[in-house]
Design a binder for these strands. Structure first.
Lengths: 120, 120
DNA sequence: ACAATAACCGAAAAAAGATTCGGTATACTA
DNA sequence: TAGTATACCGAATCTTTTTTCGGTTATTGT
């Protein structure tokens, strides 16, 4: 894992939380796993905008911080299954609130966004 | 504002939400404003780890997306005051949950972090 | 007149994070 | 045996975000 050059603030709950799930696709990955999508390829299929590589990297980080658990069967076609730990599950209410809030404001954000683009 | 080269996913609530408040210090800034800290210098004092410049930039983005409002009095010492809009206030329950969740797991994260550093 | 303070802004540089690409290993299937 | 699928890794590159730094403007206190 990459070594930071700027000291991290871990005395602030917000910053700790972002360290755990602030990655571009982490909450989407957690959401997918929660919906029963367990294997990397399938997670990738459910989030086509994310590359498989970034899913692997972020899964490894989630694993490192105990948000997900991995059970690898070392048989054909190398079958790894990820599931949420207790920590991961404790994130679900948050995840749902964030998703709901975002969905509620998505039209407004898109509008604002297109104004930016139009004004060029 | 920086022009993105990679198309953004705005059909996913999570991604929309992160577009609005995913910046490194945005939730901290919103929290400060909510606590009655209204002026950029004071926000900076309350978040010393963030540079004044990044607070300015993120305030401008929050303003652009209607999360905060600005009332500038054009008098000495150029007194700008920021306050939350309805959208900004609708973020507060989320903010509190994120902060609480993070605070609850901060010790665990710090431990895991130090294991990484020790193993070098 | 001059220092100090506040709120900016622009641009370059640095840092962090994501993406692309090519590789390994394994084992089934045709 | 060759082809396909899965999981994963390393490294280079690219993108995005943050930081650093040096302005500008305006007003008050000395």
């Amino acid at each position: 894992m990459y070594e930071k050059k700027i000291e991290e603030e871990l005395d602030c709950g917000i910053r700790v939380a972002f360290k755990i799930f602030g990655g571009k696709w982490k909450l989407c990955i957690i959401d997918a796993i929660n919906r029963g999508i367990a294997r990397p390829v399938d997670i990738h299929k459910s989030i086509p905008n994310a590359t498989l590589r970034v899913i692997e990297i972020q899964l490894a980080e989630l694993l490192f911080f105990g948000v997900v658990d991995k059970c690898s069967e070392e048989i054909y076609p190398k079958k790894s299954e990820y599931k949420l730990t207790a920590i991961g599950e404790s994130l679900l209410p948050l995840l749902n609130q964030i998703d709901t809030w975002g969905a509620k404001h998505s039209e407004f954000v898109k509008e604002r966004q297109s104004e930016l683009i139009d004004s060029e």
